[in-house]
Design a protein around this nucleic acid. Structure first.
Lengths: 90, 90
DNA sequence: AATCATTATAGCACTTGTGCTATAATTTGT
DNA sequence: ACAAATTATAGCACAAGTGCTATAATGATT
């Protein structure tokens, strides 16, 4: 490990896709008029986790996304209705 | 922890959704005529990971799914074109 | 400006996803 | 039936997701 390496968790994941997912999530949540806290409670996820997803701090598991989609009563195909660019770094 | 608890990794995740995602993945991979190994290599994921996803052993992260979707050149909306039942245990 | 609601960070413990490697099981083709 | 290809398991090490709790930052309302 080199000295230049960042100590904070690094974004080794698909930032582009996660960015779009986050945006989509916020959009839908807002449309439904839910706060992060309400969404968290109803989804049985923690508030911190919702925040971390929406701010692209983490790379959530699909189960987590499924829980959220259920709560928002939105089809996955709508939650994921964005395009991934081919050729991504990760 | 009670004695009855299973020692092998338990499926505490959304088995229903993961089941459908797995099926969808196999379908598309087959249509494209790719083996797990080829998909793994091109996606820069390990073979074991592909197998674990298709056999619903794990709950993958969305980045992993994004990588696969890119490789298969399939829109996320198509990969996720299944319905989650509302009311799921997890 | 002050208060309240909402969102964002942070650290810790614990669980789990992932890569790596090897091997077993299954399927396919001859 | 045999061999080869493909798929499925397994164990280990390490990285990272998640819950929990608390606090800071931001936004909204009066």
């Amino acid at each position: 490990m080199e000295k230049k390496d960042i100590k904070q968790r690094k974004l080794i994941f698909d930032e582009e896709g996660l960015q779009m997912l986050a945006r989509r999530l916020k959009e839908i949540r807002s449309e439904k008029g839910l706060t992060q806290e309400e969404l968290a409670y109803r989804s049985e996820i923690t508030l911190s986790q919702i925040a971390r997803i929406e701010t692209v701090r983490i790379n959530p598991t699909v189960s987590t996304i499924f829980k959220i989609a259920r709560t928002l009563e939105v089809p996955l195909s709508e939650l994921f209705n964005f395009e991934l660019s081919l050729l991504s770094d990760k």
